[in-house]
Amino acid sequence: MNWQRVWAMIRKDVIEFTKSKYVMSAIIGMPLLFAIIFPLTAIMPIAKIDPAEFESADFGQFINNLFSKAVSNWSSLDPQAQTLVMLAYSMFIVVLMLPIIIPAVTASETVVGEKERKTMEAVLASPMSESEIVLSKIISSFLPSVIGTLIAAIGYIVITDIIVYPFIGQLLFPDLISMVLVFIFSPMVSIISVELMIMISTRVTSVRDAYQLGSLIVLPLIMLVVAEMFGLLFQSTITMIAGIAILAVIIFILFKITANIFDRERALVKMV
C-alpha cells in the first residue's frame, strides 16, 4: 500500500468536496439542521407545554426499563420530563443516522462523479493499485460523514441538555451509550455504508442510479442503529465489545470484496 498515493487521492477528493455546494450542504448543512432543528422543533415544544396538561402516564415496562438505565432518577420524573427524555433519545437516533446518510452523497460523488466527469481514466491510468483506489475512496467518503456527525452530535447534545436539564436535574448527554454510539458504533456503521456505496458506485454509471440503489442498502443499517439505540443489540459490555468486533470483521470483509470487484477494465469500458 502506497500511502502517499492514498493521501493524495483523499486530499484531492476533500478539496473537491469543499468546492461542491451540493456535497457541502450534505456534510455541513444537514448535520447543523439535525443538531438545531430537531431539539428546537421536537423537544422544545414539549418543554413549553404546561405540566398540568400531562396526566399521569404509563409508558409501559419496556420503556421504564430502557430509560431507567440511562436516567438514574427516571421513576421519580414527572410525565413531562419522561416525555422529554424519550424524545431526546429518539431524536438522537436520527442524528446517528447521518454517518449512514452522508456517504450516500460523498461515495457516489467521489466514484460515480469521477466517471461522469470523465476524470476516472486519469486515476485508472495512474500507478494506484485497485486496493489503493478503493481505500482512498472509502476514507475520503468516510471522513466528511464522521466530521458531520460530530458537528451534529455536539450541537444536538448541547442544545438538548440546555432544554432538558431543568426538568431532570442532570445532564442527559453525554452518557456512556451515546459516546460509544457517536465515537465507535456509528463510525463503524458509516464505514460499512461507505463500502456498500462504493460497491454500488463501481457498478453504475450515473450519480442518480447510485443514490437510488444506495438508499435501499442503507435501510438495514438504519435499522441496526435504531435497534442499538433502544438497547436491543448490546445488552452488556461483553456483547458491546463482541458487536464492535463483528462490525470490524464485516468492514474488513467488505473492503476485500470491494477491492476485488473493482475492475479497471470494467470501470473504464463502462465509463465510455
Partner: peptide, 22 residues
C-alpha cells in the same frame, strides 16, 4: 478527453498527479 479536475486549480491538479506518481 482531458480528464482534468475542474473544481481544482491548475496547481492542485498538477500537485495531485505529482503525488500519485510519487
Amino acid at each position: 478527453t482531458p480528464a482534468i479536475y475542474e473544481r481544482l486549480t491548475v496547481r492542485q491538479n498538477l500537485e495531485f498527479i505529482a503525488r500519485l506518481y510519487n
